[in-house]
Nucleic acid binder design. Structure first.
Ligand SMILES: [Zn+2]
Ligand SMILES: [Zn+2]
Ligand SMILES: [Zn+2]
Ligand SMILES: [Zn+2]
Lengths: 141, 141
DNA sequence: CGACAAAGTGAGAATGAGTCTCATTTACTA
DNA sequence: TAGTAAATGAGACTCATTCTCACTTTGTCG
């Protein structure tokens, strides 16, 4: 387990405690599952991975984590959304999707972040952003 | 009806003909509906607008148009996807979504487009991109 | 013109992700 | 330890989207 995972897990647990929520095993396992990945997974993938944890609990946990800004929802082009942990430092990545086979790869780009940071919109308080690049991967050319 | 709509409509109809597809009234009405909007609508909104056109036909038409690059799918954060016409010139916009009320506004940003254009990814042929900014609109502050 | 094949269509069934309900259990707090 | 609010899991439910299928339209060829 990498340091970052430990950090995110305990960070998540403390934010949950600060929010007045109770400690719980099933939600803890959802947090662990998210901590162990470096890119997005669907709610049903997590549900399938966690035997003995109900679907409703998985969705609820993800929802709570999302409200606390600990997890973000990402559209991976398929039929289900993906969810991935949010690094408290603000460090993040975006995604490239192969529209043929569905493969998803994370990427980072500083110039892109700057361009987005410079966008201001009257009447809107901007909080986050999502960028998805679409194309074809090597295997599908 | 603006010039651009006429252009996109006939452009769409010819591309459909070129693709070996047959002329059809119901699909024509779906094309009209998309032509008449300058931002995204959901499939069910279009279906509701077009009395006498079956749901399956609306979805099929959108799918065909999407495959021909005439329409693009956009994730508006809600439960359904939006679809909007693609200008053959390549001119396009992205979206700002209010996560509280769901309001969607289009925006354009040249610096953002340049930053995206400069992104290259080994093993991927990039074809399109989607950018969504999230925040709160004035009414929801 | 017909006649044929391929594309198109609409009603409704089916699918599948996500949400809701509710009776029961668990965690904190006084 | 009792009270209270949060948490849980099974399963019912919703709703966007896809699929099926019998039937119609379109375009082509003779
Ligand atoms: Zn990711
Ligand atoms: Zn970013
Ligand atoms: Zn738009
Ligand atoms: Zn763009």
């Amino acid at each position: 387990m990498a340091d970052q995972e430990v950090d995110w897990t305990s960070h998540a647990e403390s934010r949950i405690h600060e929010a007045g929520l109770k400690k719980s095993g099933p939600r803890g396992r959802v947090i662990e599952s998210l901590a162990g990945r470096d890119c997005a997974a669907t709610a049903l993938e997590i549900d399938a991975e966690l035997e003995g944890v109900g679907r409703a609990t998985v969705y609820r946990a993800i929802e709570q984590l999302e409200e606390l800004g600990l997890v973000q929802k990402v559209d991976l082009g398929g039929s289900a959304f993906g969810y991935e942990k949010v690094d408290p430092s603000g460090h993040h990545h975006h995604h490239i999707v192969c529209d043929d086979c569905g493969k998803v790869e994370p990427f980072e780009d500083e110039a892109l972040e700057e361009a987005i940071h410079d966008i201001h919109r009257k009447g809107f308080k901007l909080e986050k952003h999502e960028v998805t690049l679409h194309g074809q991967c090597q295997d599908c050319r």
